[in-house]
């Protein structure tokens, strides 16, 4: 499964990758971007199975990226999980409204992340 991890913090990207690799390193392969614009370009270039995206990022933030993607028919069914520090309920509602399939609040819990990926992949 090819996963695109978008976060402006390299360490955060590493943490997310590691928590998945710990579980099953053979299953996942990763692409990385540190802002929304780069993420968009990668998506245009390569096939991605799952998008893990942060909210607060320079250039194009995660929320706007998701909104942009969902406008385009080819990304309508792309599974997206937002991983962000934003914990307020109104933020989650906003993100789900924008089109994310699930939402995870940092600091990331390995088990929760795995469970959410499983759920999102099965729904879509």
């Amino acid at each position: 499964m090819k996963i695109l991890v978008v976060d402006d913090s390299r360490i955060m990207r590493t943490i997310v990758k590691n928590s998945l690799l710990q579980n099953n390193s053979a299953l996942y392969s990763f692409l990385e971007a540190d802002n929304g614009v780069d993420a968009f370009n990668i998506l245009e270039r390569e096939h991605v199975d799952l998008l893990l995206v942060d909210w607060n990022m320079p250039h194009l933030n995660g929320l706007d990226l998701v909104k942009e993607l969902r406008i385009l028919p080819k990304y309508k069914n792309l599974p997206i999980i937002m991983i962000t520090s934003e914990a307020a309920k109104y933020n989650v509602i906003e993100a789900v409204k924008a089109g994310v399939n699930d939402y995870l609040v940092k600091p990331v819990d390995d088990k929760k992340l795995l469970l959410k990926i499983e759920q999102v992949m099965s729904i879509n």
């Binding site: 607060n56 520090s85 914990a87 307020a88 609040v105 940092k106």
Partner: peptide, 12 residues
């Protein structure tokens, strides 16, 4: 990232 998480989480 830490201060971002502290501020983001505290919003809850």
């Amino acid at each position: 990232e830490i201060v971002n998480i502290i501020a983001g989480n505290a919003k809850k």
